[in-house]
Amino acid sequence: MIKVVDVHKSFGKLHVLKGINFNVSPREVVCVIGPSGSGKSTLLRCINQLEQVNEGRIYIDGEELTHPKTDINAIRQQVGMVFQLFNLFPHKTTLQNITMAPIKIKGVDKEQAYEQARELLRKVGLMDKADVYPGNLSGGQKQRVAIARALAMQPKVMLFDEPTSALDPEMVGEVLAVMKDLATEGMTMVVVTHEMGFAREVGDRVVFMDEGLIVEEGLPAQIFDNPKNVRTQLFLSKVL
């Protein structure tokens, strides 16, 4: 589904990704963990082309994103992204946030889009917040709306960039629950997270990154209970 081949990315002199090779199969849930500054978020942003790679290639569903002739907007429609800081559109209601892209880009009929949006709101447990502006939602509610917004484009892949890092502790659970449901339904997901419990329980595979490289990857049980690399061990001893 996603294939990342030898990707390098630098911000000025800072070499953030130093040759990443990484694959995601359909219906797979991959959790990316690692210390801050290890390049996890940058990798995710490269997969959605919010950052352009300096070297290497990225494929989604066989199409090369990094090719200059690729219509990136069309591909992005198939890749949902959830941000740490939600990035909801503050001038639009919950329902309008969710329906904007389907109506404006896909040309979906308004009524149909609204119906679909209500369905999504039910799924994330926010039926009663349809006409509320983001300013009046809690952090957890905002992130659930953001997930619904991404899902409205019916993506093949969902990317989560530390979706619970900006939340108050009591709200983390409601967001993770929605993500867990999504995983159960068979959505292909790449989740950059600090929630080790979630990674262990929901992830099909865990990837540990440090200093711009994938240091170790494998089944959650294997990584968490029996890490081979010293750096993985060190990191896990700090966070667990």
């Binding site: 959605n48 941000f83 404006k104 880009i105």
Partner: peptide, 19 residues
């Protein structure tokens, strides 16, 4: 983040600006 969110939904730059 607003521009990034709009782009991540598949809007081109012009659509993101307008909407």
């Amino acid at each position: 983040g607003q521009m990034e969110a709009a782009r991540s939904l598949g809007m081109n730059e012009r659509q993101a600006m307008i909407y």
